Simulated assay, not measured.
Amino acid sequence: MHEMALCEGIMEIVEEEARRRSFSKVRTVCVEIGALSHVDAEAMKFCFPVVAVRTIADGAVLEIVELPGVAWCMACSRSVEIAQRYAPCPCCGSYKLQVTAGEKMRLKELEID
């Protein structure tokens, strides 16, 4: 389950920001997860409280914003939403798609004390 490692990485970023900006408590961690990122949002919700125990984020809420996958169809020259890689264009059925969004996961914001 790589989501545990992702949550550990998030905590490293949170703790580094706490040192830089001198805050002592995190109430909410907001993360954006793209539909094509291969990250399971439910697994993240399960892992986050485990990783946050005895840290400045202990008890914090993990908010997840799920972003759609987006691709450019080279056949019909449209930007289209796709649910998974190698899916056909929902407009014309072509498989000539270039993914343009939805591949990443990023820490969007922190609510702190």
Rank of each mutant, 00 (worst) to 15 (best):
I82S: 03
K108Y: 06
E17R: 06
H38W: 14
C30T: 14
E66M: 10
L67T: 10
E8W: 05
R54E: 12
A43E: 01
K45S: 03
A83C: 10
G69K: 07
F48K: 00
K25N: 14
A101L: 05
V65R: 15
A83E: 15
A43N: 04
Y95N: 06
E42M: 13
M4C: 05
G59P: 00
P88R: 06
V31E: 12
E3P: 10
P90G: 07
R20H: 08
R19P: 01
P88H: 06
R20N: 14
E111F: 01
A5R: 15
S77G: 10
E63V: 07
E109D: 03
I56W: 04
D58C: 01
P90W: 07
V31S: 12
E3W: 06
P90N: 10
A71C: 05
G34D: 03
R106G: 02
M4E: 13
P49N: 03
E81M: 10
D113Y: 12
I10C: 14
E12G: 01
F23Y: 12
S24A: 15
G69Y: 02
Y86M: 08
I112E: 00
M105W: 10
G34Y: 05
W72G: 09
E109F: 05
R85N: 11
S94F: 02
A35Y: 00
I10K: 13
C91S: 09
Y95F: 15
R106H: 11
A18K: 03
W72L: 12
S24D: 15
V39F: 09
I56H: 01
E16S: 07
I64F: 14
E32T: 11
V50Y: 11
E12S: 08
E16G: 02
V65S: 07
V50W: 13
I10N: 07
C92M: 00
A41L: 04
R85G: 14
F23S: 00
S79C: 11
C30E: 09
E8L: 15
S22M: 14
V51L: 02
C47W: 04
G59A: 01
H2S: 02
F48D: 02
I64W: 13
A71H: 04
E66F: 01
E17M: 05
E63K: 15
E109L: 00
M1W: 14
M44V: 08
A57I: 06
R27C: 02
E15L: 12
I33M: 05
A35W: 00
M105Q: 00
Q84C: 11
M74P: 04
C7S: 14
E103V: 12
L6T: 12
M11W: 13
E111M: 01
T55E: 04
P68L: 09
G34P: 03
M11Q: 12
D40T: 08
D113A: 14
K45C: 01
R27D: 05
D40I: 09
E111A: 00
W72M: 15
T28R: 11
E103R: 13
A71D: 05
I64M: 15
I10E: 11
R20P: 02
I10A: 13
E15W: 08
A75H: 10
C89Y: 04
A71M: 05
H38N: 14
R27F: 07
Y86K: 10
C73W: 12
M105H: 04
E12T: 11
A71T: 07
